[in-house]
Write a protein that binds this DNA or RNA. Structure first.
Lengths: 145, 145
DNA sequence: GTGATTGCAAACCTTTTGCACGCCA
DNA sequence: TGGCGTGCAAAAGGTTTGCAATCAC
């Protein structure tokens, strides 16, 4: 979790685009700048609604396609959801999820022990593990009340 | 994992329906009998295609609504998916998932250590944990080849 | 200049809703 | 018999696709 200035972030973004042969368009920059400040798991439409304020002419398709592109280059994750619209996770650092089965919300949490979970030999033989996540299912405080 | 005869299973199902005030209809019995034999994570449509063979007049809606009903009474789980159609998990025992980011398939696996993972105090204070699952993200053997 | 990207529209897929009929309890 | 459950049809919601115009390199 290092602090970076907005310019650093933008430079990083430009580099990443070039690495993957992607053009740096104002639409992509705007979307990028919006999502990196989010700590929720927005749908494409939610991002579209926010980006539209700064860039009124942008189309939903551009936002949606850009998010797919960002997912392809590892800039965002596509989240596991339980029905409904696809959600994107701007936080690609190791983290875990609390999933409230009542309201459906997914809350991020961090836990070093879970990050360092051992993967059994027999699974590593059959499957190349790239990341791991613990999902806790239950009832959040708001819903319990 | 105890073995049970088909009649045992059906009796169990009838009991469960009565417990929840649900009527035992031939459609529900047929769907139930089909899904308990599955070890995959079918979509509603996949189940519809299979059930239709045995019960040609059944409608997709009935299958879909029945699956929701089954999910409500804990007979199946609604799976977390990464876009696309909702998937149902007929296996409600504790288990974990391998998620192949290339083909999108999700493979079940069982692991006692993961089942017994400790949940940190500070989370239990904020969140009533009902279940836990480890999701390993990576590349499956078929896709690696 | 040229190929990637955008914006628009239509198509597609899945899920949800409303309603009349039928069947289980 | 009463009310839940079913089947059909339409609507809604989200994603994908095709194409012409535009823009970054």
């Amino acid at each position: 979790m290092k602090q970076e200035s907005a310019e650093d972030k933008t430079r990083e973004f430009v580099d990443l685009c070039h690495e993957h042969g992607l053009k740096v368009t104002p639409q992509r920059v705007t979307i990028y700048r919006e999502i990196i400040t989010m700590d929720t798991h927005p749908t494409a439409d939610a991002i579209y609604q926010i980006v539209k304020k700064e860039y009124p002419n942008i189309s939903f398709d551009t936002v949606n396609r850009t998010l797919q592109t960002f997912a392809d280059i590892g800039l965002v994750d596509v989240m596991e959801v339980f029905g409904g619209a696809k959600r994107f996770d701007p936080n690609v650092d190791d983290h875990h999820h609390l999933h409230c089965i009542r309201c459906g919300h997914v809350i991020d949490f961090f836990n070093r022990t879970y990050d360092e979970l051992d993967v059994p030999e027999e699974i590593q033989e059959e499957f190349t593990v790239l990341g791991k996540r613990v999902v806790l299912k239950g009832i959040c405080k708001a819903c319990a009340a």
